Computed example of a mutant assay.
Amino acid sequence: MELFNGMQASALTSVTWTKSSHSNATGNCVEMAELPGGQVAIRNSRDPEGPALVYTRDEVAAFVAGARDGDFDRMIG
């Protein structure tokens, strides 16, 4: 299967989606899944059949490090 940004998340049938323990009751969260080959897919938990974005592990690591450092805090404040 070819993996690409914007592919239907529903096409990723053999992966396990993980939601943050910080997600709220209204479902405002993203879910992530490790893909064969080490890439990571991200989807909107409110639209599990919708599109998924596909990133490398290094791209996800850079994002997580930035989130931990507060780089994106102004977007949620």
Results as ranks from 00 to 15, higher is better:
M1H: 11
M1E: 06
M1W: 12
E2D: 10
E2F: 14
N5T: 08
G6W: 15
G6R: 09
M7D: 02
M7F: 02
Q8C: 03
Q8S: 11
A9P: 05
A9K: 06
S10I: 12
A11H: 08
A11T: 14
A11P: 01
L12W: 04
T13I: 14
S14H: 11
S14A: 12
V15P: 06
W17S: 03
T18R: 05
K19C: 04
K19G: 00
H22N: 06
S23I: 06
N24Q: 04
N24P: 02
N24M: 03
A25W: 11
T26Q: 06
T26Y: 04
G27D: 00
G27Y: 01
G27C: 00
N28L: 10
N28V: 01
N28P: 00
C29I: 05
C29T: 08
V30C: 10
V30P: 01
V30I: 15
V30M: 13
V30E: 02
E31M: 07
E31P: 00
E34G: 11
E34F: 05
L35F: 04
G37I: 09
Q39E: 11
Q39K: 15
Q39L: 11
V40D: 07
A41N: 09
I42E: 03
I42T: 07
I42S: 05
N44S: 09
N44H: 10
S45N: 15
S45W: 04
S45P: 01
D47R: 14
E49K: 08
G50C: 08
G50R: 04
G50F: 09
P51S: 13
A52W: 01
A52C: 07
A52S: 13
L53I: 10
V54R: 13
V54E: 12
Y55K: 03
T56K: 09
R57A: 13
R57D: 11
R57M: 07
R57I: 02
V60G: 01
V60T: 02
A61L: 07
A61N: 15
A61M: 08
A62W: 02
A62R: 13
F63A: 01
A65S: 14
A65W: 03
G66D: 09
A67C: 14
A67N: 12
A67L: 14
R68H: 12
R68Y: 07
D69E: 14
D71A: 15
D71F: 09
D71M: 08
D71T: 10
F72W: 13
D73F: 14
D73R: 12
D73T: 12
R74F: 15
M75P: 00
M75S: 06
I76D: 02
I76C: 04
I76V: 13
G77C: 07
